[in-house]
Amino acid sequence: MDKQEAKLLLQSYRPDGQDAADPAFAEALALARQDAELGRWLENECALDKVIGQRLREFPVPPDLRGAVVTGQRSQRRISKPVHAWWRSPSLAWAAAIVLVFVAAYFVRDGSDSSVALAAYRESMTANLRSGFVFDQRDERPEKLKDWLAEHGGMPDFQVPAGLREAASLGCKLFEFNGMKSALICFSLSDQQVVHLFVVEGTRFRPQDFEAAACALRCNDYDTFAWREQDRVFLLAGGVRPDRLRELAGISPESSEN
């Protein structure tokens, strides 16, 4: 085997040494140990392959893909399997009735003054992220997604927060919350992190919910930051630190405590 043949073979050698014991590479690796030039070449080759591999594995995967796969499978199973008549079981029917009574009581109490709680909104929206969803529209330009939301969801214009204006968007989705439309736009940050911006009509939210301590809370495994701007309520959620969320929102710590 000459050096050229060795180089050709070693192009298939993985940089982390998983193939070190593979006899197919033994002769080429032995040559690399004896030949300083070939050894340096292999070292550089592995370093370069390692970096390329790392960068490719950092390429962001759509945040809704996992949810779409799992949800699709559950739907398929519902279609293909016979439905169990669980309500025919007296104990389960009673349990369901009791839950319904509590849920109804909660909404009657909460809806008596038509106000909605920020905590309920945060819980509902992060639960949507956790359970998975499919984008209604995909575009890397947030302005295009805002246009789509205005056309399809009756979500009037809103300002993208200052810290997200340079970020590329991934897609958008409309959710329902207490009879209101809640818009979601997902952003990909320059460091490959993904953050989710929810916007909803804010007039029915209780002002006292936006005191500083309530704005940055963790919910359903997501750090969140909420704020109110004119007649909109914004909720940022993501796997980034709460102070980073605040920066992205373009809100200084002082102003949120007022």
Partner: peptide, 24 residues
């Protein structure tokens, strides 16, 4: 055996400065 072999020179440090989207 029939493949020619002359790799262009790219340093790993240079690629290290690129992000995942650029490399993809």
């Amino acid at each position: 055996s029939s493949v020619e072999h002359q790799l262009p020179v790219v340093a790993s440090t240079v690629v290290n400065d690129l992000d995942g989207t650029t490399v993809m």
